[in-house]
């Protein structure tokens, strides 16, 4: 580990590697140990099932006083994720607490895939469609999963 990396980050990284969360991988870049390549498996019984979604995560200078920055790199049709992969999730914003960790955040994101919340949207057009015609929206989400997350 490079000098100057806070113990907290070293410990979290070690635990992510030693006790990985099922369906979630997070590996730091060799040249930037605050920057992680992440993949999350779409939860079973969700329109994202069978897909593997790539994300990127960055721990800012003042982490854990401020939350990690994280976004999807794989295109995904979801009311709380926008066209650039930015995620609307309370624990990434006002509800962040230094007691949370990379691990808990990634689990929250996996849970968000299993439980889209169109009443707190980031991608407004997706959320609107989700409310108007949930069946069709879920079909689109499945299709996008096949097209973008299964290659």
């Amino acid at each position: 580990m490079a000098s100057g990396l806070p113990k907290r980050i070293i410990k979290e990284t070690e635990r992510l590697v030693a006790e990985p969360v099922p369906g979630i991988h997070a590996v730091p870049h060799e040249d930037n140990l605050r920057y992680f390549d992440v993949s999350i498996h779409g939860p079973a019984q969700s329109p994202y099932e069978g897909g593997i979604f790539r994300l990127e995560l960055f721990l800012p200078e003042d982490y854990p006083m401020t939350p990690p920055k994280i976004r999807f790199l794989t295109k995904i049709y979801h009311p709380n994720i926008d066209r650039l992969g930015r995620i609307c999730l309370d624990v990434l914003k006002g509800n962040w607490s230094p007691a949370l960790q990379i691990r808990t955040i990634l689990l929250s994101i996996q849970a968000l895939l299993g439980a889209p919340n169109p009443d707190d949207p980031l991608a407004n057009d997706v959320a609107q469609r989700w409310k108007e015609d949930e069946k069709a929206a879920i079909a689109t989400a499945r299709e996008w999963t096949r097209t973008h997350a299964m290659t």
């Binding site: 930037n32 605050r34 920057y35 990127e56 960055f58 982490y63 920055k69 976004r71």
Partner: peptide, 16 residues
């Protein structure tokens, strides 16, 4: 050693 903000997160900041 200060945190080095990766390209994509830098561009997201600039976008915002």
């Amino acid at each position: 050693m200060s945190a080095k903000v990766p390209r994509n997160f830098r561009l997201l900041e600039e976008l915002e």
